[in-house]
Design a protein around this nucleic acid. Sequence first.
DNA 1: CTTGCACCTCTAGTCGCTAGAGCATGTAGG
DNA 2: CCTACATGCTCTAGCGACTAGAGGTGCAAG
Lengths: 140, 140
Amino acid sequence: MKKITIGDAARQSGVKVPTIRYYESIGLLAAPSRSQGNQRSYEPADIRRLAFIRHARELGFEVGSIRTLLALQDDPDQSCASADAIAKARLIEVEQRIRSLMALKTELEIMVEGCGHGRVDQCRVIEVLADHGQCMHPHH
Amino acid sequence: MKKITIGDAARQSGVKVPTIRYYESIGLLAAPSRSQGNQRSYEPADIRRLAFIRHARELGFEVGSIRTLLALQDDPDQSCASADAIAKARLIEVEQRIRSLMALKTELEIMVEGCGHGRVDQCRVIEVLADHGQCMHPHH
DNA sequence: CTTGCACCTCTAGTCGCTAGAGCATGTAGG
DNA sequence: CCTACATGCTCTAGCGACTAGAGGTGCAAG
């Protein structure tokens, strides 16, 4: 059997070495076997699990949700209703975040366009920040 | 002179009480005068400053940037080039974040739509997470 | 005068890592 | 076989921007 070091695991999964150790410490990844010299030795399944975690993190899932998703993956007989619920909740979050960022973008554009590059006391950036009432697109 | 307590400052500015104390501790807000009983007593200018900070935080500016923006506001003779640069940088960040969230939204939608609500081993949510190659809209 | 809320300070916890110190191990070249 | 040097190990502390809690004091109403 090929022994995968933590460095190789990091390269193959795209998860950084200290992060892998961190995931082990919080119980997201099982502690792997060790070599004679006490070095972690991973299996291909661990790499897949790490890639799963990484992808889920990139999608913005929190560690708690990932824990549930991993538990579901480990037990394929279960209904995927939980996974679906988690993904749907995340989708709603993302949609809200997009809406709020769009409003924010508009507000920033107004600020930047309004800036005449003169003195601060005529600057729209400062002005808009100081007085929220000037926001054209309320986002909160 | 009317004395504004920290609680009233919180209500008027929309910044929570412990957060106001935190801002004082990191030097974002000057320490106000105190009453006989050692209670903080704010001026209307402090409330405006807090509202400024709150608004900037809502727009996603980091405390470091807010520090600069506040310094600019305090000295209105200065050129607003820095304020403009900060706002522009933030605008670019926001635009990138929106793009990445849109990609993410698409991916989540595919996951959720593909979920047949059956068993986990046929669930697209789990499947897509496990295999990044299935992303239709690569976002990273 | 007492009740009860608001205020005070201080410490520690949150989340998801990241950085650093100070060692041990593994590997490639000479 | 020896020496470099990369990589591994553990442990602690730090990041940002708060938030929570303990344990105490101030103050205003009934």
